[in-house]
């Protein structure tokens, strides 16, 4: 009698668990493709802001490389490179870089660089800077980040790739210096990294698409 009651409990719970997880598994199967497509499109949208769709014809989403980087103080960790090609020719690369020099925590950026070495655009993906001060680096909050468009290593000269307070050409915002300084340095280092490697980067085989 006792054992039966224990066994019934166990069986009951077992059935529910199987039914529940079966339902979840079924839905997952049903939605998996759509979700993957959503993710792809979300990333593409932010990449397209930097490198417009009409400039390339390859699958920029899968044509990626992840390179270890060292020796660039403005960048920490590996850099992911999204490569844009048209008719097989390299057009531009989008570098996903991270800087640790922010006021609080890491700042993740997308830096798009044309093959001629000019900046096609910069966007902040993720940061934890002081709200109201450092968060002006976001495109939604101010246009400061657009100031990089068209710049290159010679324009301005390398030693002037800095905020104004440190003798450079880029504005800091009132009340905050550290955040813009970190972004400027990160963009500069992204340019420095990309410059000599622009051709070799496009020759490597892409990473296998990440399983999701």
């Amino acid at each position: 009698m006792r054992y039966r009651s224990i066994l019934i409990s166990a069986l009951f719970l077992f059935l529910f668990a199987v039914a529940g997880s079966g339902l979840v598994a079924f839905t997952y199967d049903l939605t998996a493709d759509r979700i993957a497509e959503n993710q792809r499109r979300a990333l593409l949208r932010s990449l397209n802001e930097l490198v417009p769709e009409e400039r390339y014809d390859n699958d920029i989403f899968t044509d990626t490389l992840t390179m270890p980087v060292s020796g660039f103080p403005g960048i920490t960790g590996p850099v992911t490179v999204y490569r844009a090609r048209k008719d097989g020719w390299p057009v531009a690369a989008v570098l996903a870089v991270t800087t640790a020099d922010g006021y609080s925590g890491n700042i993740r950026l997308l830096v798009a660089i044309n093959m001629d070495g000019t900046v096609a655009g910069v966007r902040v993906v993720d940061h934890r800077e002081t709200p109201g001060l450092g968060d002006a680096i976001e495109h939604g909050k101010s246009d400061w980040i657009l100031g990089f468009n068209g710049r290159s290593l010679g324009d301005p000269a390398l030693e002037q790739w800095d905020v104004k307070r440190d003798g450079g050409v880029f504005d800091q915002f009132t009340g905050a210096t550290i955040t813009p300084r970190a972004v400027v340095k990160a963009v500069r280092d992204a340019l420095l990294y990309f410059g000599p490697r622009r051709h070799s980067l496009f020759e490597k085989h892409p990473d296998p698409p990440a399983a999701s």
Binding site: S9, L13, A17, G20, T27, A42
Partner: peptide, 28 residues
């Protein structure tokens, strides 16, 4: 005696379904 685990199982399944649905149709 198995009331609470069963409820949790039910709720967890529903929430996962909703999560999957949302990420499929309201991704943003």
């Amino acid at each position: 005696e198995v009331r609470i685990p069963v409820f949790v199982l039910v709720i967890a399944s529903i929430v996962t379904l909703i999560e999957l649905t949302m990420s499929a149709w309201f991704y943003e």
